[in-house]
Computed example of a mutant assay.
Amino acid sequence: MRVAVIQMSPGADKARNIAQARALIEAVTSREAVDLIVLPEIWTCLGGTRAQKFAAAETLPRRGMAGGEAYEFLREVAVRNGIHIHGGSIGELAGDKLFNTSLVFSSKGEELARYRKIHLFDIVTPDGQGYRESAIYGAGEQVVTCEINGLKVGLAICYDLRFPELFLQLRRQGAELILLPAAFTLQTGKDHWEVLLRARGIETQCWVAAAACTGMHREPDGEPRYTYGHSLIVDPWGHVVAKASDGTGWASAIIDHGVTERVRANMPVLEHRKLV
Rank of each mutant, 00 (worst) to 15 (best):
His230Asn: 13
Gly95Phe: 04
Leu161Ser: 15
Glu32Ile: 10
Ala135Leu: 08
Ala199Thr: 11
Asp256Arg: 14
Tyr131Thr: 06
Glu194Gln: 14
Cys45Lys: 09
Gln52Glu: 15
Val241Pro: 11
Thr248Glu: 15
Glu133Met: 08
Phe163Lys: 14
Gly68Gln: 05
Ala135Thr: 05
Gly222Val: 10
Gly64Thr: 05
Ala244Glu: 02
Leu196Tyr: 11
Glu165Met: 11
Arg162Leu: 13
Ile254His: 11
Phe99Tyr: 15
Thr204Arg: 11
Ser30Pro: 04
Ile118Met: 15
Ser252Thr: 07
Phe163Met: 09
Leu103Asn: 02
Asp256Lys: 07
Pro10Cys: 02
Gln169Asn: 09
Arg162Asp: 11
Lys14Phe: 01
Asp221Glu: 02
Ala265Asn: 09
Met216Tyr: 06
Ala51Val: 09
Leu177Ile: 04
Gly91Gln: 00
Ala251Tyr: 07
Gly87Val: 08
Ala33Tyr: 05
Ala21Lys: 05
Arg264Thr: 03
Leu179Pro: 06
Val77Ile: 12
Glu32Gly: 01
Gly95Ser: 08
Asp246Gly: 12
Ser245Asp: 15
Glu271Asp: 13
Leu155Gly: 09
Thr29Glu: 05
Glu110Gly: 06
Asp127Cys: 10
Pro40Glu: 01
Cys206Met: 08
Gly88Asn: 09
Met267Tyr: 11
Gln169Trp: 05
Arg31Phe: 04
Phe54Trp: 07
His272Ile: 01
Thr125Asp: 15
Ser107Pro: 10
Leu161Gly: 07
Gly11Ile: 07
Ala183Thr: 04
Gly48Tyr: 02
Ala33Trp: 01
Glu72Ala: 06
Leu168Arg: 14
Ser106Cys: 07
Asp246Glu: 14
Ala78Trp: 01
Thr101Arg: 13
Arg22Gly: 12
Met65Asp: 13
Ile148Thr: 01
Val5Phe: 07
Gly82Met: 03
Thr49Ser: 15
Glu261Arg: 15
Leu36Tyr: 07
Thr214Gly: 04
Thr29Ile: 07
Met267Asp: 14
Arg16Gly: 15
Ala212Tyr: 00
Leu232Tyr: 01
Glu32Val: 12
Thr248Tyr: 02
Leu74Asn: 11
Leu168Glu: 13
Ile136Asp: 02
Gln169Ala: 13
Tyr228Ile: 00
Gly128Gln: 06
Val208Met: 09
Glu76Gln: 12
Gly258Phe: 07
Arg16Trp: 04
Lys108Val: 06
Ala55Arg: 12
Asp122Asn: 15
His84Asp: 09
Glu111Gly: 00
Val263Tyr: 04
Gly128Ser: 09
Val3Pro: 10
Tyr159Pro: 09
Lys274Asp: 03
Ile255Pro: 03
Asn149Leu: 13
Gln205Glu: 14
Ile178Asp: 06
Thr248Asn: 10
Trp193Ser: 10
Arg75Asn: 00
Val3Cys: 10
Leu275Gln: 12
Ala27Trp: 00
Phe54Leu: 10
Thr204Trp: 09
Thr44Gln: 13
Val124Cys: 08
Gly64Gln: 05
Arg162Ser: 13
Ala212Lys: 00
Gly258Tyr: 07
Arg198Glu: 09
Lys108His: 10
Gly189Tyr: 00
Leu275Asp: 12
Leu180Ala: 11
Trp250Asn: 04
Tyr131Asp: 06
Ala56Ile: 01
Arg22Asp: 15
Ser107Gly: 10
Leu161Glu: 11
Gly247Ile: 01
Gly215Ser: 08
His272Asn: 08
Phe184Ser: 10
Ala78Ile: 00
Arg172Asp: 14
Met1Asn: 08
Phe121His: 11
Arg16Val: 08
Pro40His: 03
